[in-house]
Design a protein around this nucleic acid. Sequence first.
DNA 1: AGCTGGCACTCGGACACGCAGAGTGCCAGA
DNA 2: TCTGGCACTCTGCGTGTCCGAGTGCCAGCT
Lengths: 338, 338
Amino acid sequence: MLSERRLEVLRAIVQDYVGTEEPVGSKALTERHRLGVSPATVRNDMAVLEDEGFIAQPHTSAGRIPTDKGYRLFVDKLAGVKPLSSPERRAIENFLDGAVDLDDVVGRTVRLLAQLTRQVAVVQYPSLTRSTVRHVELLSLAPARLMLVLITDTGRVEQRMIDCPAPFGEASLADLRARLNSRVVGRRFADVPRLVQELPESFDSEDRGTVSTVLSVLLETLVEETEERLMIGGTSNLTRFGHDFPVLIRPVLEALEEQVVLLKLLGEATDSGMTVRIGHENAHEGLTSTSVVAVGYGSGDEAVAKLGVVGPTRMDYPGTMGAVRAVARYVGQILAES
Amino acid sequence: MLSERRLEVLRAIVQDYVGTEEPVGSKALTERHRLGVSPATVRNDMAVLEDEGFIAQPHTSAGRIPTDKGYRLFVDKLAGVKPLSSPERRAIENFLDGAVDLDDVVGRTVRLLAQLTRQVAVVQYPSLTRSTVRHVELLSLAPARLMLVLITDTGRVEQRMIDCPAPFGEASLADLRARLNSRVVGRRFADVPRLVQELPESFDSEDRGTVSTVLSVLLETLVEETEERLMIGGTSNLTRFGHDFPVLIRPVLEALEEQVVLLKLLGEATDSGMTVRIGHENAHEGLTSTSVVAVGYGSGDEAVAKLGVVGPTRMDYPGTMGAVRAVARYVGQILAES
DNA sequence: AGCTGGCACTCGGACACGCAGAGTGCCAGA
DNA sequence: TCTGGCACTCTGCGTGTCCGAGTGCCAGCT
């Protein structure tokens, strides 16, 4: 196990490197931190830390920079979550208040998070399957053409066109709409498949085909991986990435455009508590020089979706984690109110 | 007026520069194009073109590059719109087919356009005010809480929460819903304000407040500038921007994050026909080294929204214009079908 | 009048060189 | 176990030089 002082040295290295973006040497360390020992001693400690794989040298006779493993130790043992300042808290409230609909909430959240952390923000829309049903609407657009509209308690709205196998009367439609709603309103979408299972049986044979079609469209809409949506923002913050810019930024932008990648990234985060993935801990190879800080949010105790930020491994972890956590809480509140 | 050959020289310069991304000299020009004259002659022509402001030298003893004015002339007089190859056309159809809802259509369109042009794609959602009403739904969530859902013929769905001044009975709700729909379904959203104007008068005094509230929320939703939404994609293509990368890309990314800026950008495009804005022709200062190619699209003759791409002034104009036009047509078709 | 070949000139990019500074590793001594 | 000292290494930067691409201009040709 590393001694107390060596950990202190690691912490100092991480902090300085995050601040200056330059490899930090033993002399500078002793000057900027009260370690109470001389540069020579620090050098010995650094040699140990390097042997253990927590820091590395870009080249001989340069200072040290933390490795992914070093950041990991820093995040796990050496750093807390830095709470936001009260002006920041107020800014969050002001920013998030007055959103008119869910798109607006998500949009504002993305911008807010990007602004607070100065990094790329990713916010997932509340998952359908984890939300509860507020209303299911069926509209007749043409004799054999319906529109299905799902509305969740979190304000999310999904619609689908349905081509019916046979014309469907206005009375049958009202009937189906009423029965559907009485069964599912207030229930979780995840339970919907079970709840509507034998619904077609109670209809006349001529309508049964249409009812089945409607239900199958409904169920398709709930398929995980398809139903997930998200919004990203703050990509201009990538320009503060570092000097060796183009080569690093390209794969990140590409990864950010693949919803699938991002969803998987957020999906890997644990449901409760904050998840930090550092550098190579990210499966996707375009993101091996970035860290992801993610957390679930929801209107109640349970998470209905996740949000987080993507930034260089060289990021201010305590501050970022504080901002992400705070934003998640506020968004949860907003959703609960609406 | 410039002679035929001088125009030919300009065309050659633009083509070469777009291809190589390097200033092009007189010798290289004569080798790569059959101009039928010697480098010396070309040099004289170049001097004239430079005097007229169509091309410029980055520094003495370098080749020439087109100026914004040069590109403008190229686009207006020297280049046509290059039609897509038939594999490309097929790719569009395949890519756009099978979209389940409007978000999906817009999302696919953005990705398609980004892929075809290898540039940043921007697609505006069909404007509410220019669409027609398919249905207006009112749902009761609590005694004094309603949800308003607007559905357009282009598949766009907007919802708003409404806090009523007084509880609103189920019967009144059904009444309002029916009257509202009978007045506005099939009409253009732009006409809605006029059509619902005296609706409150036909209700009991106790309900009149709520009806007014509902209508005011409805009208607010239709306010231009607020109701416009858009989606962007292909930002990773910015990495192919050039060598002096970071300094150029930063303001572009920032501009792209400001919906207002983009909406204004698209708004400046003429309603019909394709608009090309080159470099400094763009009002926004972050976009002075980019060009914008935009065109309206719609399910019928009239444009319901616009789409386009943003790229370096040094872009393949004929190809880009071809792709933008083709995509706009297909999207129009898709919307008309749904 | 317009085109061409020739020529002198300019400038930026690449390369080599040397130097200063920062940082290290190691060792002997407290 | 810590510390000061020392030799060593490597990068970054500035300078100087050279080469080549490209230009402008001019005299001569058609």
